[in-house]
Structures are given as structure tokens and as C-alpha cells.
Amino acid sequence: MSTLPLTDAEARDLRALAGVMIPASDTYKVPGADDEAIFADILKSLDRDTADVRTALAHLAKLAGGAFADLAPDRRRDVAATFKQEGGAPLGALNRVVLLCYYRDDRVMRSLGQEPRSPFPKGHVVEQGDWSLLDPVKKRAPMWRRTS
């Protein structure tokens, strides 16, 4: 028995849809969301969204008239466009899981100029900025209402 949260057919459709949502790009030198490592992360991360994702995939299969993954590329795009309009909250959950995993991939983060690391313990640098911008506000009279 499979320990994965989705059936093989559901997983194939999800991977095909992820590739339509975020395709690989030579311009930005990034993989698509259907990349093997990213998709493995997606499958591991469904967690409390599993039921919604399965509902969304059932809707997708219905729109496709069968397996979405078996459609030709042009037809996939058409069906995905309809699905995007009609998917509702279950699609929102599916979309969220795909994005959560895609934008924490090292290759994607580096392409965005980000360091692939946890925020702690290194943190980030935020400039103090030009505090003289506050000078006009400092010159204002008190604005708060006196009560006595």
C-alpha cells in the first residue's frame, strides 16, 4: 500500500498542473514547480491541505475529461485556465502548497538574489535611514485631545 497522500494518478495530475502554473525558465535559470526535487517536497508537504488538494484534483480531472497529465500541452493550458477560474478554496490550498515549496528551493531563491538559509541566527541588515525625514512632524503642535 502506498504511503503517499495521493494516488499515482492524482500525483501525476498535480505534477503536470504544477508545471503549467510555474514552468521552468531559461531566462531566469529556474526549474519549474514540476521539478523532481520540488515536486517531492510538494508531496511531503500536503499535510493538513491533503483533503482540499484531492478535491481540487478531482475537479481538474473532471474538467479534463480524464487524466489531466495525459492532455496535450495546449489542451492542458486551456483546462488549467478554466480550473483557475472555477477552482475556489480547494484550488487556493493546492496553489499555496505549490508556492510554499517552489519558493524555498535553493535554486529558485538564488535566482531571486536570496540566501537559501533560515532567518535565524544570522538575521538581516536593515538600514537606519534618513531620520531627518521626521523633522516636519516634530514641528507639529500636539494633536491629541485634552480631556480636562
Binding site: 502554473m21 510555474i22 514552468p23 525558465s25 487556493g92 508556492l99 531563491m109 531571486l112 536570496q114
Partner: peptide, 25 residues
């Protein structure tokens, strides 16, 4: 970065497909 992607997709600002990367940046 992830919250931006989720919020902008939900708002219809961030497309699926080829333009996704350009718009997101």
C-alpha cells in the same frame, strides 16, 4: 517571498505560465 506569491496569486496579480517569473520579480 512565499506570502507575496500566495497573496498575489489569490489577487489575480501573479499569473500562471511563462509570465509568472517576470511578474513575480
Amino acid at each position: 517571498s512565499i506570502v507575496e506569491a500566495i497573496a498575489s496569486t489569490a489577487a489575480g496579480r501573479l499569473p500562471w505560465g511563462e509570465d509568472h517569473h517576470k511578474v513575480y520579480r
